[in-house]
Design a protein around this nucleic acid. Structure first.
Lengths: 200, 200, 200, 200
DNA sequence: GATGAATGAGTGTTCATTCAT
DNA sequence: TATGAATGAACACTCATTCAT
């Protein structure tokens, strides 16, 4: 695929992402995206098969951006509980910053990904699965190295932990004072992961 | 509201819930619900203002059913960590059974509630908040009685725990072998809540 | 037709006339009339064939009321130009008072009569014709008695004069200060009928 | 507005005018106009906001055509009663020819203009008022020049005269033999305007 | 390649009419 | 006889997609 085609596709995806995030998949018309991009709406069909194709690409792109934001954390690098705990803190802060900086990304992933193929939600399902695999890799590392308990299925733990993080992110998206959420949330997730709720 | 009107409304809501769960809010036409109910589609408009009104009522009804399923658990009853842990186990099993028994309910709550008012998702938002309040009440009880740590915000803990549960429920919804999920999931949630992931 | 049926029909026609006059034929629903009457809307179909039948009856009733208001003027009574001129003045005042007192009647005749059978406007056509016949009878009388010119077709004169009166009535219907219209209008019609516009 | 857009709008207005004149505003569906025009019905909504917008434009266009047909008569040109009487005759003939040549125009103005905004008939009201102003200008001219009596309100006279003409036009529209109506009507209007009905 | 005019399938909603009670 | 719940034909309007320019 030649570079200028890639560029044009990307420009369309950026414009579409913006509008989808604002209005939602169903409420967004092709013409809305066209207006945002400043191009004729017939143009889209030279780069994408149809509206759904655009939307799926937008979601994939958003997912890639999120993944990229934490890509420098190596699931296999932590060698002790303390190191992993620090790593979790770092990842938490990165995700937190990402949500605050790019709310549109989150709206697309949290809301529109589901709307696009509601009939058989494979899009959101695959995203969840990919995220779970990634988180599970950290857990596996800890189990292999012996600093995490082995009696839990790493994949299930990955899903559960991601569930907490996802919920926090959604909350953050609608928060009046996002910054005030940072520490309580990261501490809560860390505590649940490493200490449990029991007192002392 | 007379009984027969209530009955009819309920019959409509059941039919609508079934179709919404299958096809999703946007893909469902009024005529689809009519066919499911075996009634003329004009009938709906005697009982509901419009399609959105039906959908909101369906979601409210589904939420009520979920709440009802765990209503007999008193947030203030546990007097020790052990009792609360058992309570969490019971709630987990009840929710698990509910999701397996009534997947339509979950589809409506997880997917359609968001789709109905994507522009300003107050419907899903309120549901999340109500659930968080409920879970937080359990945490508060533990903090008051001294068996749960006091350095976390109960509301945040409620959201985080619900996030895990929600993620598990979504997963369960699409699982090939739901029963196989039961124990790993409940154990994982319990462990994260009470023990942490650290080994030994 | 038994008396109580006549009474009920009349009650329906009164209620329907009121609502038709307010909202217009097309904007009026059967249920609006039912609400006005305080009866179930199924009842109408025991007394009238359908909505159009009700509307036609309402128009016929309104026309009868207008006719009745000037029924005591005998087209054959005037024996001189002066007497006819006085008669015209009396009729003018009566019609004027009627329009002011019963605007609903006029709205039905001016607006709704046309709307009911727009495809082939026989309803309004017949009303116009009946009114023209009536006015023409006065002209004929004058021509027969020799005080009105014989070189005009009485029927055409009837239509033309009614046209002036009708226009005045429509105007009156929307006038801010109806009373201020009375004398200018009656004088204008009288002058056009008997004197012409030429000066001196 | 570019020329081709103007042309398309005009083609739509012509087609819509034809169908509205035949069936009436309420009985006309957008699809009827589409069929008449030989275009998809979605096309209308590129040029007009909605059905009412089309109808109002049709009426405005019809009114413009009528006005245009007599536009070459200058309300201020007549300098004597004889000249004005001749002018009235000319206008009468022109209007007569117009009604015979373009009955659709008249159906739209007489019937549909009222139907479009029955609730508050400003469309028909404004048309009537504009016509009255126009006719009144002729009267005023005669009054200023001294050949028409000054004791009548020119505006009222304008309305009354237009009322006669309008009634004649409506009649003409439904006449079996339109040509037979020409002379009697024009003579009647002229006589009423200039001579009065009195004999000798 | 880029455009946007044209399209028509599809949708939510209304309301006159029927008929079981 | 009176009712009003049920009905479904009918309609205005939207918008993703196509294709001639």
């Amino acid at each position: 695929m030649p570079q200028d085609v890639v560029d044009k596709r990307d420009a369309i995806l950026r414009a579409a992402g913006k509008v989808f995030a604002e209005r939602g998949y169903h409420a967004t018309g092709i013409s809305d995206i066209a207006r945002e991009l400043g191009a004729g709406h017939g143009t889209f069909y030279r780069y994408f098969k149809n509206k759904e194709d655009i939307a799926r690409s937008v979601v994939a792109r958003a997912l890639g951006q999120v993944m990229g934001a934490i890509a420098d954390e190596d699931p296999g690098s932590s060698q002790s509980l303390e190191q992993y705990r620090e790593q979790v803190g770092r990842i938490g802060h990165k995700l937190f910053d990402l949500v605050v900086a790019e709310p549109a990304l989150c709206r697309i992933l949290f809301y529109d990904a589901i709307a696009i193929d509601r009939a058989e939600p494979e899009l959101a399902g695959r995203a969840m699965e990919a995220a779970a695999q990634y988180t599970a890799a950290f857990i596996h590392n800890g189990q292999d190295r012996g600093f995490l308990r082995r009696d839990l299925d790493a994949h299930v733990v990955g899903l559960a932990v991601n569930g907490m993080i996802l919920t926090g992110a959604v909350r953050l998206l609608h928060a009046q004072d996002p910054q005030a959420m940072r520490d309580p949330w990261i501490r809560t997730v860390e505590t649940l992961m490493f200490d449990g709720l029991g007192s002392s």
